[in-house]
Nucleic acid binder design. Structure first.
Lengths: 212, 212
DNA sequence: AGTAGATTTAATCAGGCGATTAAACTGTAC
DNA sequence: GTACAGTTTAATCGCCTGATTAAATCTACT
C-alpha cells in the first residue's frame, strides 16, 4: 500500500523542481499552481494534494535550494583562513548561485512577502540562519582584530545579505552580466586591502601622504 | 471643451499617486487596475482611458517618482566636496527614499520585468540614468585620485545600485529597521577611511602568515 | 439653446486563478 | 479476487483579472 506507491515522493520531487524553475523564469507573480503543474507535467490538483497550496510548495522549493546552497557555502567557507580568501570563496559561490537561480528564488520570495503577511514570518525564519552563518564566518576570520571593531561581523553580514538580494535584481538590468562581473571583481580587489582601513587617518590633502 | 475640462489631468494625477501607493503596499503582484482605481476613488476604466493599460500607468508612476528623487539627489549631491560628504548625503536621502517608498516602487518594477520582456526595456532605460548619475558624482569627488584607480566610479555606481535595490528587500526582513540602520552607519563610518585602501600593503603579521 | 468634445460610468467579456470534489486508477495485502 | 489506501484525474466552483463598449455626463463655445 504505502510501499512502492512512493511514486508520490517522485511527484513531490518533480513539483518542487518545477516550482523552482517557474519562479525563476516567471517571477512570483507568474507562478501559479497550473504553471508549476504544467512544467512538472503533472495534474495541477496534485499541488494541493501534496503541499496544501502554492505558497507551501514554493516554501518547500526554497527550503530545498537553501539547504543545498548552505551546504555548499559551509563546506567552502570553512576552508577560508582570511577575509581575502573568504571573499574570494564567497564570490565564486555567489556567481554559481546567480547562475543556478537560488538568488532569484530567494529574493522573489522575499519580494512576495511584501504583500503577504502569512508568508513574511516564514521568510524571516528562513533568512536568519543565513545572516547568522555569514556573521559566524566573518567572526572566525576577522574576529578580535581591529578590522572587526571598524566593521562588526554582524553589520557586515547585513551588508552581505543586502548585496545578495540586490544582485539578483541588478542582473536584470545587465543582460550580458559584464556589470555584475565588475561588481564581483571589485569586492575581490578590495578585500585583501580591507585591513588598511584600520590604520590611523593621515592628515588631509595632497595625494594621500602615507604616514607612520 | 478642452479648456477647463482638464479635470482629466487631476484624474491622471490621482491615478499615478494611487498606483505608487498600491505597488508599495501590495507589491506588483497585487497591483491591479481595480485596486489602483479603488485607491484613487475613481472608475477602473479610467486606467485604460488615460494610460492605455496598467503597466503604462505604473511606468508613469515610476517616472514621476524618479524625477522627484533624482532632483533631490542632484541638488544635495552637488554640495558634496568629498567622498565622505557624498556618502553621508546619499545615506540621508537613501533613508528618505526608503521611508517614502521610491526604492520599493523601483525594485518592484525591476522584479516585475523578470517575467515581462516588454517591461524590461522600459525599466532598463529608466535605470541607466541613475547609474550615470552616480558615476558622475563619484567621478567628481574621487576622479583622478589613487582611490579611483582601485575603485573605478563606474563599478562603484554598480555597487551603489545593487545596494539600493537590495536594501528594499532587506528591510522586509528587518521589521524595526534597526538592521538597516546599522548598514547605513557602516557606510558612513567607512567612507572617511576609504582612501586608506590605496596605501601600500604593509607586511603581514600576527595571525596572518607572511607569504610570497 | 444647442452642439461638440473630453471625460466618466456601469455593464460586460473571456480567461486565469486557488481550491475542492467525486470518480478513476494502481499496486499491495488479505 | 476483492477490499483497501495512496495517488491521480477531469470537472467544477466562485472570484479576480485586463480590457472593451455604449451610454451618460459635463463644460465650453457658438
Amino acid at each position: 500500500m504505502a510501499e512502492k506507491q512512493q511514486q508520490g515522493a517522485e511527484t513531490r520531487d518533480r513539483l518542487i523542481d518545477a516550482a523552482a524553475e517557474t519562479i525563476r523564469s516567471q517571477g512570483y507573480a507568474g507562478t501559479s499552481a497550473r504553471a508549476i503543474a504544467k512544467a512538472a507535467e503533472v495534474n495541477s490538483a496534485l499541488v494541493f494534494y501534496h503541499f496544501g497550496g502554492v505558497d507551501a510548495l514554493l516554501l518547500a522549493a526554497l527550503d530545498r535550494s537553501s539547504e543545498q546552497r548552505m551546504a555548499a557555502y559551509r563546506q567552502a567557507v570553512d576552508q577560508a583562513k582570511s577575509l581575502e580568501e573568504l571573499v574570494e570563496t564567497a564570490s565564486a559561490i555567489y556567481r554559481a548561485d546567480l547562475e543556478g537561480g537560488h538568488i532569484t528564488l530567494f529574493s522573489e520570495m522575499v519580494g512576495a512577502s511584501i504583500a503577504r503577511p502569512e508568508l513574511r514570518a516564514e521568510i524571516t525564519a528562513r533568512s536568519d540562519p543565513w545572516i547568522d552563518f555569514i556573521e559566524q564566518a566573518l567572526e572566525r576570520v576577522i574576529g578580535g582584530s581591529p578590522l572587526a571593531r571598524l566593521l562588526p561581523p554582524r553589520d557586515l553580514a547585513y551588508a552581505a545579505i543586502t548585496f545578495y538580494l540586490g544582485v539578483n535584481l541588478f542582473t536584470h538590468l545587465d543582460a550580458d552580466r559584464t556589470r555584475t562581473e565588475a561588481l564581483f571583481n571589485l569586492a575581490e580587489r578590495v578585500a585583501p586591502r580591507a585591513r588598511l582601513l584600520t590604520m590611523r587617518l593621515p592628515g588631509r590633502r595632497g595625494n594621500d601622504k602615507p604616514k607612520k
